[in-house]
Design a protein around this nucleic acid. Sequence first.
DNA 1: AAGTGGTCTAGACCACTGA
DNA 2: CAGTGGTCTAGACCACTTG
Lengths: 252, 252
Amino acid sequence: MLVSNSGQTATERDNGANLTTAKLNSWQGIRDEIQRRILDRSLVPGDKLPRDEELAAEFGCARTTVQRAMRELADRGAVVRRRKGGTRVNEDPFTRASLDIPITRIEVEQAGAVYGYRLESAEKKALPKRVAEQFGLPSRPKMLNVRALHTADGTPYIFEDRWVSFDTVPEILNVKLAVESANEWLIRNKPYSRCDIGVYAVNASATEARMMRTSPDQALFVIERTTWIGEDPITSVRAVTRPGYRMISRIR
Amino acid sequence: MLVSNSGQTATERDNGANLTTAKLNSWQGIRDEIQRRILDRSLVPGDKLPRDEELAAEFGCARTTVQRAMRELADRGAVVRRRKGGTRVNEDPFTRASLDIPITRIEVEQAGAVYGYRLESAEKKALPKRVAEQFGLPSRPKMLNVRALHTADGTPYIFEDRWVSFDTVPEILNVKLAVESANEWLIRNKPYSRCDIGVYAVNASATEARMMRTSPDQALFVIERTTWIGEDPITSVRAVTRPGYRMISRIR
DNA sequence: AAGTGGTCTAGACCACTGA
DNA sequence: CAGTGGTCTAGACCACTTG
């Protein structure tokens, strides 16, 4: 190790290059410094970074601390790390966005609106082909089909068409779905071990247009979620959102 | 510490409760075990977990190892950790999905199709109000407006309408945009420090319908991305995808 | 003021994987 | 098979935040 960090404070070395960042020598400081080198193209895609041990010497810290910083950068997709291969700046950069999908009631309330919920129907039916495919099931067993409308200040917000496996979740048959949303009951009472999510756009069908009080063919944003516990299907839901619905995410 | 882990192997204690998981005593093993307790409702939302030190004793490992496991669960939104307050199972569970948005060329090629690109127009114009708002700018400066079509096997895949700040990125004026997509050049050459992402559905405008070779009013999925380096705007792009486009994500 | 999580260290050993 | 990242430890001290 060439440089000791004893007695060296952040301010001593902060020459103004970093405006936002934490103490140098902290794992966040190291992460930000490496990221800065990528941002200002001191390091370009494909470049090999020094070994953790060398970086530890450079920053005057333990290798563990460098590890912590580099793991974050790897999680973000900024660098690729391989044993023996070393650490390189990612050749194929991509944008990694993290989306939090809350319970609808909470989403509405956080927007400052009054949440409402109306059950449209709940009946046992054979799974349509599309949903069976979602679950990856070869057959088309009976499940509970629940249709319900979520409203914000009285206007339609999300219309959900849901299938719940009462083989996996028999308790669902005892839930008063006229009062409590299946969405909320399931999320609070039946955590999943796997979840597939798909988002896309559709033209409103006649039914959807009526439910959402809009015109047929209106473009609507759809969120599909299918969940399992282990190998067993729990639920698959197609949530049609109101016209103009946007899903947003901010990075950094 | 009551239990030592020396000489204790995973198999010794693996009673079959965990099918998928790594060695117990590893941070992943601890993470999975705690998650299992949440899944099978041994722990329910709001429950307080033992202190890290106690868990370390229970699992016969160092506190650091428990810390690593718990940090992951906190990142996933499964638990909430506060100093002095301890660790609790999250009261308001949400679904956290991670979306990777690759460079369009790579997305097309990975789908096994032939990628094509055609520049439609590139001209300096004053920013429309909508885009100025995206950037959070009070004024409406001139930027480079680039319109281009990405194709897969010759059919329209994504139509992008992009604004690039040539104040922040003067080099863009020298890029041969007829050959190289602004998308790809920017991602490879101008990393950003902040990125806002929005996804939503629109009815195709007349222009969009023509570009995408579909009918007006066809529902299309739109991805909007706006990026900055520090406080300076880089680019804002509205990418209209072909009919039927889906964005997907899998959790766990 | 005290309790709990967050960070850091120095060192050891392990597990990949590329030359 | 050797080089590099990944994990783990035991202990110390720090930084929040709540009772």
